[in-house]
Design a protein around this nucleic acid. Structure first.
Lengths: 343, 343
DNA sequence: GTGAAAGCGCTAACAA
DNA sequence: TTGTTAGCGCTTTCAC
């Protein structure tokens, strides 16, 4: 079924059919109606490739996701999709399993398929490569940082303030000594959080003790081992961890040492993962605005795509969006009244 | 950058360039090498649309997902993607939020974009519509059933045997009376499981008591209310629920009634969701082979796509694949030795 | 082994 | 308002 057949059936030229498809206002109402009916009747859909060859947009964006089984990433993805759909775009979601080769290959695929823009979540790609993608004419937005992203359009979370405020909360709860278990990866975020921790302590004139600052694997096991070590060396009254996973491990270690959370050692995590309000005691943590990250990222991308004509966002100064986190105060931090224990 | 420029740079005709791209064996080695070098140097990629206009395949498949935030669905998706990638295909993942209108619109989009095949997960689309998609020339595979799928290529899980075997397990654990809380949706699966439950009881010559068979909402709340009711009316010694969520609710209700799981009432769920081995006591449940479902579904689709030439799987008898579940025996079912408590 | 040219299905400039 | 026609970038048939 092609445009010629429609034209023939309607007794008009292909141009007229094309017109009712693209500029219906330029077709006489009667002719238009007739053609529209035939199109509907024969269920004609213009050939995607032929159209693509003429227009140079596909109403498609590419979304590169580090790991499809991680609900946090998928929440971001949902944010992106929500905006895309509303804009009439369809989203190519690509799962790259944190593999840089695969990520590259997917990005190539997306370029080959002429997507109108690309969103990279926590990308592992190097700066130079991303630059080359932009140079090839594809607007790019980075969501979440794995490295220095100052040269690109990006959406990130303010981990520093997030960490600072949760540590402040611990301080306000009366804990005089506070340790930190920080995951070594993703590096930039962990360092930001470490800085937030330090700022909070400094802000209250509290000393930074080296034995209370430990780098661990960003896993439950890592948290367990790190907390265990701290406990053996003489533990602080509270521990802040840079991820909920580390916190779960730490809580286990504390319980295994016949100590109680939060009475003996309070714990606070980061991420507000689903389990955080299912463990006993419920975990005080920091909520990250995943869905919002997706929404803002997508909006940014569409601004670039629809940006003033020729430049299409290229050569413009990159836009940076930083979103704030939200405290989720639950029992594990030893707060007297458990305010804010939302759910 | 187009084929003309390459041709000019190499001092040959476009036909020759096209040949090294598609049938390199028909080009003189010297010419070929020369052209290949230029292609690499200029980083030339053939235009996707122009190619699409000539070939009629896109090396792309569409995957329609009911809900992107559900990890179970995403595991299936990962299975599909794993196969697709290995085959050199790229997957269009579409999130339809269980909305039939959106699902239709996505399927249209996929057809417009001329994907080579479509996989529908737990589709809400009616039979007739799916038929029309197939008639339009798109191979379709259904993964998971929401309705009668006998007319289509499909992959499903044998819920009946899954339910039967877990109920048998409860019986073997010594429970003399066993109730069932079955979610009303998805209907077909729930009914299959109900049948499995009945078969297990009948098989052991146990009576079916109506007050032990209750339909509830397929949610934690539904499970809570259903169990509550059973407890008030005089509870069985064990309860099988058709989803883990219902089981969580039931466990809560049992605890709230000052009864113990499994000592007073044993519980078994269905699904092996992530939380099932985090709750106390850990939940005995049935593991569904999500990843496998994706893999088999994708393989089936590629068989159709690559199927013998013209027919492309159309008109062929549909293939049905049924996968078996796996028991996860944990403490909640009152098994003496907790065998099989894998993780 | 290579080139000229037709054609894939559509859009849009130009002509009528 | 409508039709004619030249592309869009590529593949492939048919000559040479």
């Amino acid at each position: 079924m092609n445009i010629k057949q429609i034209a023939k059936a309607a007794g008009v030229s292909v141009a007229t059919v094309s017109r009712v498809l693209n500029h219906p206002e330029n077709v006489a109402p009667k002719t238009r109606e007739k053609i529209e009916n035939i199109i509907k009747e024969l269920d004609y859909k213009p050939n995607w490739f032929a159209q693509g060859l003429n227009f140079n947009r596909t109403k498609t964006i590419g979304l590169v996701i580090p790991h499809i089984l991680n609900p946090a990433y998928m929440e971001i993805a949902k944010g992106v999709e929500d905006v895309a759909q509303q804009k009439g775009y369809i989203t190519f979601m690509c799962n790259v399993e944190k593999d840089i080769k695969q990520e590259k290959s997917y990005v190539e695929q997306l370029m080959t398929r002429r997507v109108d823009g690309i969103i990279l979540m926590f990308s592992s790609l190097d700066e130079q490569y991303i630059k080359s993608v932009e140079k090839a004419g594809f607007p790019v937005v980075l969501i979440g940082e794995n490295k220095d992203i100052s040269e690109f359009n990006s959406v990130k979370v303010d981990c520093l303030i997030g960490a600072e405020s949760i540590v402040n909360q611990l301080i306000e709860n009366g804990h005089k000594t506070i340790g930190i278990l920080y995951g070594s990866e993703p590096e930039i975020e962990a360092l930001e959080m470490l800085e937030g921790y330090k700022r909070a302590l400094r802000g209250k004139g509290m000393p930074l003790k080296e034995e209370y600052i430990k780098s661990v694997d960003n896993t439950i096991e890592g948290g367990y081992l790190g907390a265990r070590k701290m406990i053996n060396e003489g533990p602080p009254k509270a521990i802040f961890t840079t991820s909920d996973e580390i916190a779960y491990g730490a809580m286990d270690a504390i319980k295994d040492s016949e100590l109680r959370v939060p009475e003996d050692i309070a714990v606070a995590g980061f991420g507000n993962t689903r389990m955080s309000n299912l463990v006993e005691p419920k975990l005080t943590t920091v909520e990250l605005p995943f869905h919002k990250m997706g929404i803002y990222g997508a909006r940014l991308l569409f601004d670039l795509i629809e940006g003033d004509g020729d430049e299409k966002g290229r050569n413009k100064e990159p836009t940076h969006i930083t979103l704030q986190t939200k405290l989720k105060i639950r029992r594990s931090c030893g707060h007297k009244e458990r305010i804010g224990e939302m759910f």
